[in-house]
Amino acid sequence: MDILFLLIPLSLVLVFFIGALFWWALSKGQFDDLEGPAHRILQDDDKSQSEVPPG
């Protein structure tokens, strides 16, 4: 049972760490748009430069 003396404080640290992580993610807008960025990564900004429309 002695391991608990290590694990319980450790779990406390983890709780605060996870809480802070979630707070950071939320405030940085990580949850604002769950769909767009997944597609955006696939879109090249440079691929289409060769395209020239008529006229």
Binding site: D32, E35, G36, H39, R40, Q43, D45
Partner: peptide, 28 residues
């Protein structure tokens, strides 16, 4: 209508002179 539109709008906005930042949120 699709995520490509969001990209399109963003690119278009950033091509304007004087535009500093344009970010499109597809979800909202």
């Amino acid at each position: 209508n699709c995520a490509a539109c969001a990209w399109l709008v963003e690119r278009r906005l950033l091509s304007l002179d004087g535009m500093r930042e344009a970010s499109v949120n597809y979800a909202t």
